[in-house]
Simulated assay, not measured.
Amino acid sequence: MTDAPQGWTALVLAGQRPGVDRLAAHFGREAKALIPVAGEPMLARVVRALADAPQIARIIIMAQDASALVADPAVAKAAGDTRIDARRSGRTISGSVLDAVNDPAIGLPVLVTTADNVMLTPATVAEFLAAAGAGDVGVAMVERGNLERAVGSNRRTWLTFRDGAFTGANLFALTGTSAVNALRFWERVEQDRKSVPRLAAHFGPLLMVQLLLRRLTLADAIAAAGRKLGASAAPLLLSDGRMGVDVDKPEDHALAERLLADGRA
């Protein structure tokens, strides 16, 4: 594995599972990544935020048919930057990221985000990357009170620990070489991510019991999970509470449009 170009490579995960995506169909689109939010496809908005961040040296859009996404006029305008490329994704998310990291032309460090991470801004990218690097893997999180102060009471997937409740922000930093171990491990367990008993079989019952009984802080839990994955890992808390909002359902879309309209005002 060779060094990446000076700066970070950003991988934007823009694929979707086989079959009809319900949210895309709801908005009359074939691809979820092309659903417009505040008048702009989600993918174009995320790519523009990354392109405006000086820390990012390269942006790679990853999807089953990435070239078709880039051909969309609004995305093509954002993708006119020579730093932006498209790459066909593989069978699994973690496997696709692993393939990219193992590509000598890419390497580390890598920032990973998703096409529906529409609240992403260059300022958040800078904040996140400034905090990354202490371990092999950095995971962006938003504290519940911070999110609710920014957007109001909101239904999210909350992970509750001894020091509070948190939600993910679809932003990951892969910096150390052992991040490859984490990706290989997660590729094996990815299909079981929504089943607590199956995850327990991979991570071990002791860690799962500690998590269920809320005996660990967020940092302790991420570190312990990282050790199971064979890499050092740490949570990186973001100051922008809106970063806990992604677009998975129509009510998320309505909230994102309201937040973006408020931001313009």
Rank of each mutant, 00 (worst) to 15 (best):
M1H: 08
D3C: 05
A4H: 13
T9K: 07
L11G: 06
V12I: 10
V12W: 03
A14V: 02
G15L: 00
D21Q: 11
R22L: 11
A33P: 02
I35L: 06
I35G: 02
V37W: 03
E40V: 09
L43C: 02
L43D: 04
V46S: 01
R48M: 02
A51D: 12
R58D: 00
R58C: 00
I59Y: 07
I61C: 03
D65I: 00
A66G: 05
A66Q: 05
S67N: 13
D72E: 15
V75Q: 02
A79S: 15
G80M: 07
R83T: 03
D85T: 15
R87C: 10
R87E: 10
G90T: 13
R91P: 10
T92G: 11
S94Y: 15
V97D: 06
V101N: 00
A105Y: 04
P109H: 14
L111K: 01
V118Y: 04
M119D: 02
L120W: 02
A123K: 15
T124F: 00
A132W: 01
D136L: 09
V137A: 12
V139Y: 09
V139C: 06
E143V: 09
G145S: 15
E148R: 14
A150Q: 13
V151W: 11
R156K: 12
F166N: 06
F166W: 15
A169K: 03
T175S: 14
G176N: 12
T177L: 11
N181L: 08
R188E: 08
V189E: 12
Q191Y: 02
P197G: 04
R198W: 07
R198G: 03
R198E: 15
L199R: 14
A201H: 13
V209P: 06
L211M: 15
L212N: 10
A219S: 15
A221C: 07
A223Q: 11
L229K: 01
L229F: 02
A233K: 04
L237A: 14
V245N: 12
D246A: 13
D252S: 10
D252H: 15
H253M: 05
H253C: 06
E257V: 00
L259K: 08
A261N: 11
R264E: 15
R264W: 12
A265S: 14
